[in-house]
Nucleic acid binder design. Structure first.
Length: 305
DNA sequence: GCCAACGTTGGC
DNA sequence: GCCAACGTTGGC
């Protein structure tokens, strides 16, 4: 069976080590096929290693003014070493990776089509914050309760930082339907949004910090960072081997395809106090299979400028 | 630009 | 192996 995925790319310019790492849907559509280099997060990398040729993937614009699903694509080449990690001048250079034992991998994705209606993250969040079917905007009521449930369970809304995610079939079908039918362009809701709650149990009142459910993650984008001083050892993985893939990217930019400009709610909870120490463990992994995370890089293009 | 979320480092 | 400090991701 085939899996469905979601890959992020940054549509806005961002200079890293002198090079622009942006990769928007416009560029993707024009180049058609692109290697997803730059992913430096173990969990994201491991997911890429699972990708098979022909599997479908959502192309998501991230770290931009209007983040959301912009296009549909397909895996056109399974995981292979991300050689950009060996290039010292590359934004995502990782001194710990080398040709003999590549630490990072990438896949090639081929552009298939644009979403007729760009699906903003704000809408997906809004839907995922609806507690009952009656809260769902009529304009998108066609996704049904099943669609709502599927969106609520997406990593995109439950753990935003992973740059390469798995998408279940129902969620995939729901996104495809929404991209096809749209309907929210005129919505204006905003008022509701329960705030960031959603799937993870967040403890509100008593709070504890530890969210037990979450744990790990991977970040996405931004790359490497390994340039810092050599600190400790990462748990990476490296070795593992065997197959795995990896990828990533993000994008965004202004696009509003369709409009959307609306925000279906925003709200973030504020609560600061860091809960940081609470536990959390990593997900990826190191080694093999694990998942873990590393950081994922952005994607492609390194253009300079 | 702010800052919540969370992965990573690294002392112990 | 635990966990506090630190650095990043990335939405807003």
């Amino acid at each position: 069976m085939s899996n469905f995925w979601l890959l992020k790319a940054e549509p806005d310019s961002r200079i890293v080590k002198g090079k622009d790492v942006k990769f928007s849907v416009d560029e993707f559509e024009s180049v058609k096929t692109s290697a997803w280099e730059g992913v430096r997060n173990y969990e994201a990398r491991n997911l890429m290693k699972e990708m098979k040729v022909g599997e479908k993937a959502l192309f998501y614009h991230s770290n931009c003014k209007n983040p959301g699903v912009a296009a549909f694509s397909e895996v056109s080449k399974e995981a292979y070493p991300d050689y950009t990690a060996w290039d010292e001048t590359h934004p995502y250079y990782d001194p710990k990776s080398n040709k003999d034992s590549p630490k990072w991998f990438m896949v090639d994705l081929t552009f298939k089509s644009r979403a007729d209606h760009f699906i903003p993250l704000s809408l997906l969040r809004f839907i995922s914050n609806c507690s009952s079917a009656s809260d769902i905007p009529e304009k998108v009521a066609y996704i049904g309760e099943e669609g709502v449930r599927a969106i609520k369970s997406m990593d995109l809304v439950t753990r935003g930082r992973l740059s390469v995610q798995r998408v279940d079939e129902t969620a995939w079908n729901t996104i495809v339907l929404m991209a096809e039918k749209g309907g929210w362009d005129a919505l204006e809701l905003d008022k509701k949004m329960p705030s960031t709650a959603v799937a993870t149990p967040k403890a509100k009142s008593g709070e504890r910090s530890t969210p037990k459910t979450r744990a790990a993650p991977a970040r996405t984008k931004r790359a490497t960072a390994n340039t810092k001083s050599p600190k400790k050892k990462p748990v990476e993985d490296d070795e593992e081997d065997e197959s795995d893939v990896y990828q990533e990217s993000e994008e965004s930019s202004e696009d509003n395809y369709e409009d959307d400009g609306s925000d279906y709610g925003k709200s973030r909870s504020k609560r600061r106090t860091s809960l940081r120490g609470t536990k959390r463990k990593a997900r990826g992994g190191d080694d093999d299979d694990g998942d873990y995370t590393g950081r994922a890089p952005r994607r492609k293009s390194v253009r300079k400028n």
